[in-house]
Computed example of a mutant assay.
Amino acid sequence: MKTSKLILKACALVAYAFLLMMHLVLKDHFQSLQVFFYAVPLPFLIFFGIIVTLLCYRWKLLFIALIGITLSISVYWFYTAYNFKSDGDIPNETTVVLFWNAADAWEFPVEVLMAHIKSAQPDIIGLVETEYASEDDLQLLSKTFPSYEFKILEGFMMVGVKGNITAVNYQSKEASYKINFVEANLNGNTRTFLITDIYQSPTMNKEKAIGAALQFALQNNAEIIMGDFNTPQKSVHFKRFTPHYESLRNYGQGFTATWPFGIPLLELDQIFTNNMFTPVLLQKFYQPESDHALLVGYLKE
């Protein structure tokens, strides 16, 4: 019996050490190991660390060391996953971007979208997983907001702009990614942005999918990238964005996680901008119609 308990504790310690290594060092550098990084977010790892610590309460030095490690990981998680930024003053001349994964409902949540358009008055609207959006929804949006042009895109996406859509270019790879590049005229200015929805499988090669979105954005001079990347923000693959685009995550409020509804677990949805804009603020709104947060970003030219 004692031998079995020792083996259990040893296995738990090894698993805990391995998962810590995955999050702090290895991350998703290797596709063969990335599933551990994606499937066990830090909040789960902290909870697992508490269980391992309690299992080892009889071993004083190890028990104290595990308490220290678990507390350190908890502080690290909170420090990197929570923003204390307040609303502050939003400049009058800002470009407002709204992005939302509107899935998780049997009908398109057009009323919710309309409420946020009235509130934020976004210049650019991008939505993914809108398979339930209909022509009736499109007509309702166009009638309610006559200064906007709305369009249902390939790949179950929808776009809206406070102006006119001048071009759309769609690219996809089955079970990997969907991308729509949009060019629009907003108040006499040409604006270019990219909407992406990356496949959710944790075993898929996310490096290729994220790389495809970035390459497509660079090739088309997209000023803004928005999407559900289905990849934690801590992924090493986002480092390729840094020379070209800045994420609005550091300009947000509260927990940076966007999924699932009401639980600060994973940051899957993001808005990026190139150096044409300076990020001002990122707001997140949770609606029961979707398990993803709705993002509203404010950019200063």
Score class of each variant (00 low, 15 high):
A65Y: 07
W77A: 08
Y76V: 08
Y79W: 13
V168T: 15
S176K: 08
A81P: 05
Q139E: 12
G254A: 08
L62F: 10
E183H: 01
I124H: 06
I51P: 07
Y132Q: 13
A12P: 03
E93I: 02
S176Y: 04
T196D: 14
G68P: 11
W106D: 13
P202R: 07
D104G: 05
L153C: 09
L295M: 07
A293M: 01
N92D: 15
V75I: 15
M158V: 15
A133T: 06
L265Q: 01
E246S: 14
Y245C: 06
A17G: 02
L13T: 06
R58P: 10
Y82R: 05
Y38V: 15
K2R: 14
S74Q: 09
L138N: 06
I50A: 13
G49L: 04
N205P: 09
L20Q: 10
S201T: 08
L127M: 14
Y79D: 12
T273A: 14
Q139H: 06
I198M: 06
I198S: 04
F150W: 11
M21W: 13
L45A: 13
T256N: 02
K5E: 14
D137N: 15
Q253W: 00
K5T: 14
I7T: 14
I210C: 04
V40Q: 03
W100H: 00
Y38P: 08
K151E: 12
V14G: 02
Y245A: 05
T80F: 08
A222I: 05
F277G: 11
M21E: 07
P243G: 04
A167L: 13
T192D: 04
A209R: 01
I165F: 10
V97K: 05
T273V: 15
E154M: 11
V110D: 12
D136Y: 09
V182T: 14
G163S: 13
K151L: 10
A12K: 00
E223V: 01
V75H: 06
L282F: 04
E207K: 11
F285M: 03
Y79E: 10
K300A: 09
P202M: 07
S119Q: 14
A293T: 00
V75W: 13
I179G: 09
G188L: 07
E129G: 10
I7G: 11
V296Y: 01
S142L: 06
A209Y: 03
M157E: 11
L299V: 03
T242W: 00
L248R: 02
I210L: 08
Y132C: 03
W77T: 05
W59V: 14
M204L: 13
P122T: 13
N230V: 03
